[in-house]
Design a protein around this nucleic acid. Sequence first.
DNA 1: CACTCTGTTGATCAATTGATCAACAAGCGA
DNA 2: TCGCTTGTTGATCAATTGATCAACAGAGTG
Lengths: 202, 202
Amino acid sequence: MDGTQGRIAARRLASPARREQILEAAIAYFAEVGFGGTTRDLARRAGVTQALLYRYFSSKADLTEAVFERIYLGRLDPRWIEEIRDRSVPLRARLLRFYGAYTGAIFTYEWMRIFMWAGLAGDALNNRYLSRVADSLLAPIAAEIGAEPGLTPPAMEDMWNLHGGIVYIGIRRFIYRLPTPDDCTPAIEAATDRFLAGCRAT
Amino acid sequence: MDGTQGRIAARRLASPARREQILEAAIAYFAEVGFGGTTRDLARRAGVTQALLYRYFSSKADLTEAVFERIYLGRLDPRWIEEIRDRSVPLRARLLRFYGAYTGAIFTYEWMRIFMWAGLAGDALNNRYLSRVADSLLAPIAAEIGAEPGLTPPAMEDMWNLHGGIVYIGIRRFIYRLPTPDDCTPAIEAATDRFLAGCRAT
DNA sequence: CACTCTGTTGATCAATTGATCAACAAGCGA
DNA sequence: TCGCTTGTTGATCAATTGATCAACAGAGTG
């Protein structure tokens, strides 16, 4: 209830809890201002002293690395690909289910912005993540489309087009701060239907 | 032919030429490292002294502002919208012509990255630019599609989907540094055809 | 209460960085 | 060649910033 920013933290915390608190604050802070942000500002927002950061992280680089790991780790749910291949469910429903889950996982302020900051900075994890998206998600989806009677399997560039058109909603919302629909399900449905219709027409 | 970086500049240059040279170097430099880059690094790459920057720009903020203006100014060609409305040309050809010209204008290392850096930093020009894209380009395109017999006019969210899917090619190439086709014309054609087919099906 | 462990802090250092300024020097007209 | 204008530089300042460390303080134990 104090009017000042930060300094909300308890006076004394168990080591793992404090580390977790700092890490969470770092994710929120770096998402907002990028990795050029200062350790002093971060500490203020975490409600601790700047010196304390160095008890839990050996350097700023060490801290940002922890932010990366936390952000990337477990972001790609292995069940997604299983569900994509589950042919007991109609193809359209599988696509909608996947992109519902995928956007549900990545359409957050922290994820979208940290991913973009990292991409611009040339982070290697970023590049590797997207390669995995291509190999483990887009390629299997293309294969499933190709397995459907009457549908031509789309090229990877077409898959990227589907993917990019959907992800761009999050870019507009969290990076460009443009108004977007609260619920992006209808947009995903429309994009998916257009895409499937295109695979049929060829 | 000196092995060192930078210091290519002539010893003495006319004032406007030097300013132009610094501005060009700033665009290339900030595109690469973002606006957190230092004036010393920039000066080194421009081949001048750090102090000289302040003869042509009153502050770093003044310099970055000049970079913005140069980048944004004249990037939206007013002829594009005229050509979009030119109904003597088939609709599909108009769409392809527009996105050929549009991607030809923005798919550069400098533009894509500075635009993204600025977007993350919350630059106002960025937001305004995209609003103009929506009002002056996407909305008229939607209207032209709606004017075509047998086609339903797409909602703005659909237009953003078309747009985002195409722009995402540039994001992959210049921000994520992923491999993309040298010529993105086929991808644009495929995306456009899918989109128009979708407008027909409804 | 005294003791110990450890989470936390304020002070501080060295390097970086935006910005300034007096001094230098290249071109050019008289 | 002299002298003026102006493009250019090296030195330097003040503020910021990542990182360190001795000292402080809260909590549990005997």
